[in-house]
Design a binder for these strands. Structure first.
Length: 492
RNA sequence: GCCUCAGUAGCUCAGUUGGUUAGAGCGGCGGACUGUUAAUCCGUAGGUCCAAGGUUCAAGUCCUUGCUGAGGCGCCA
């Protein structure tokens, strides 16, 4: 009855298919394959194949099976079961598979296998990244991660955007988005040198210094000024020594760039886009959200009330999807903060002063206390923002020059989006680059975009993992990417 | 990079003013039971107390340094 040698065929029915459309399958013979989540009473196997949150109950009449075979039905062992699908006699499920044949596709010796059928810490599972996707939490997170990625492409495609691939290796270090990873084929221990002792980059692969990209924006602007509406969605690298729950050295970023858009169009796009992504997950991953919601509640039930989330996960997502984001200027934000209770009581660690960047504590006050919803802050002081952001006209009620920059701030994770209307005026851009010490010769092509057929345009960068973090409610960004790269960590 | 906290069994943790043989729950293993749903019951094994050095009659406990992790901050998405 039981074949000792595994013979995998493609004739399997996915468990999601069985559980969501079992009506037509009752009484029929089906084959399922998956990983054992539990083996109760030597009779009931809870089988999960990754297609959904749910398990199929496989019933084995242990009298009919070899004892040595059943001994191998252990936690996370991979099995194949064939039998008839029946209405369940038990209370916990509608249908169950009465196994007629059972095959072990991959053993998981419980004395050696590190995962256990119990709650384990996020830190421990991070060290077991090759196994953690088999857990309820991580399989839910990674199905949702896929869902968000899909929704991104669908949103842009349905709205007439073109997906554009920008280079991973860049020869420019003027993008101004942080420390970069050097890319080289030179012998790092003994690089060729010029006569004055400097590394001779002309002998390197690209005959110049190159780095991993920190942003595809500058190239996306090329696309926008030809195709009108483009977006990028690719890996991004920052060599910052950032040790936080919201930073990765390697992450994925979405960067739409749109010709003829100003900062207000840009904000409208950002808000509509965020809401679309959230709605897509609400509509398609309700089981996953319910599980993650429950998980957070269990986690928080021991915390004092004021440290708990004000709303459940699903509730939060609905709220964000259904309500307008608050839109304020940086100047307004400063005024609100200076009139706030924590400011007057001296609770802020950092000074709130026009011209200084808003700190995390300030952003959190605006989002979580004052407005209690996502906030878009725009028109930041020019002195604290990048050279390519469009210089606003002087305004009498504003203390200094500002640029048409915008940050979308979400509760819990802070900045999800940073963007701007781009400076399209050649002479203004040249002046800004000069003032900020950006070498013009490195970005000659970027400047030429302003000389030949330029136009007003705008765009933004959305941190993919931060959005997934928000939607899944995961506390640490390292738990929403399969194989996180952070300072001192590049395992797997 | 800075600040704070932590590191004890496979996992999560307890371990009193420094004092005999370092404990629990879960997991594992052995057995019982068998329509279970985090199955239940009985039994059992399992320890470089992060590392090195130091103080002391005596260190899991105190001190120094280092390593690793977490939380917060900065940089940002």
């Amino acid at each position: 009855m039981n074949s000792p040698t595994p013979s995998v065929t493609s004739k399997r029915t996915e468990i999601k298919t069985i559980l969501t459309g079992y009506a037509g399958l009752i009484g029929q013979e089906v084959t399922v394959m998956g990983w054992v989540r539990a083996f109760r009473s030597n009779r009931f196997i809870a089988l999960n194949d990754g297609t959904s949150m749910n398990t199929l109950q496989v019933v084995v009449n242990f009298e009919q099976f070899d004892e040595a075979l059943l001994k191998k039905v252990t936690f996370h062992a991979c099995i194949k079961a064939t039998g008839r699908l029946l209405e369940s006699q038990g209370a916990g499920q509608d249908v169950e598979l009465l196994a007629e044949a059972l095959e072990i596709l991959g053993e998981a010796n419980p004395e050696q296998y590190p995962m256990q059928p119990k709650a384990q810490s996020m830190e421990f599972m991070r060290e077991k990244a090759h196994f953690r996707m088999r857990t309820n939490t991580f399989s839910a997170v990674f199905r949702i991660r896929h869902g968000v990625a899909y929704a991104i492409h669908k949103y842009f495609n349905d709205n007439g955007y073109f997906y554009m691939h920008t280079p991973i290796i860049t020869g420019s270090d003027a993008e101004g988005a942080g420390e970069m990873f050097r890319v080289t084929t030179l012998d790092v221990g003994n690089p060729p040198r010029t006569e004055d002792g400097q590394v001779d980059w002309r002998q390197d692969f690209f005959e110049k210094p190159t780095n991993l990209t920190v942003s595809g924006q500058l190239q996306a602007e090329i696309g926008a000024l030809a195709l009108g509406k483009v977006y990028t969605f690719g890996p991004t690298f920052r060599a910052e020594n950032s040790n936080t729950s919201r930073h990765l050295a390697e992450f994925w970023m979405i960067e739409p760039e749109v010709a003829f858009y100003d900062i207000h169009d840009n904000m409208a796009l950002a808000e509509d886009f965020c809401k679309y992504l959230i709605r897509h997950i609400l509509d398609n991953y309700a089981d996953e959200l319910a599980f993650l919601d429950q998980r957070i509640q269990n986690q928080e039930k021991n915390l004092p009330k004021e440290q708990r989330r004000p709303m459940g996960l699903t509730e939060t997502l609905r709220f964000v999807a259904d309500n307008d984001f608050e839109r304020i200027t940086y100047t307004d934000a400063v005024r609100i903060l200076r009139n706030s209770k924590p400011y007057k009581k001296g609770k802020f660690e950092y000074e709130v002063e026009w011209g200084k960047d808003l700190q995390a504590e300030h952003e959190r006050y605006l989002v979580e206390k004052h407005f209690q919803k996502p906030v878009i802050v725009r028109d930041y002081p020019a002195s604290i923002k990048a050279f390519y952001m469009r210089l606003n006209d002087e305004a009498p009620e504003v203390p200094g020059r500002t640029v048409a920059a915008m940050d979308v701030l979400f509760p819990g994770i802070g900045e999800v989006i940073g963007g701007s209307q781009r400076e399209e005026r050649h002479e203004v851009l040249v002046q800004r680059m000069h003032d900020m010490g950006i070498p013009e010769e490195e970005l000659w092509w970027y400047l030429e975009l302003r000389k030949f057929g330029g136009c007003p345009h705008a765009g933004f960068g959305l941190g993919f993992e931060r959005m997934v973090q928000f939607i899944t409610g995961m506390g640490n960004i390292r738990d929403v990417i399969g194989f996180p790269r952070t300072p001192g960590n590049a395992e797997f």
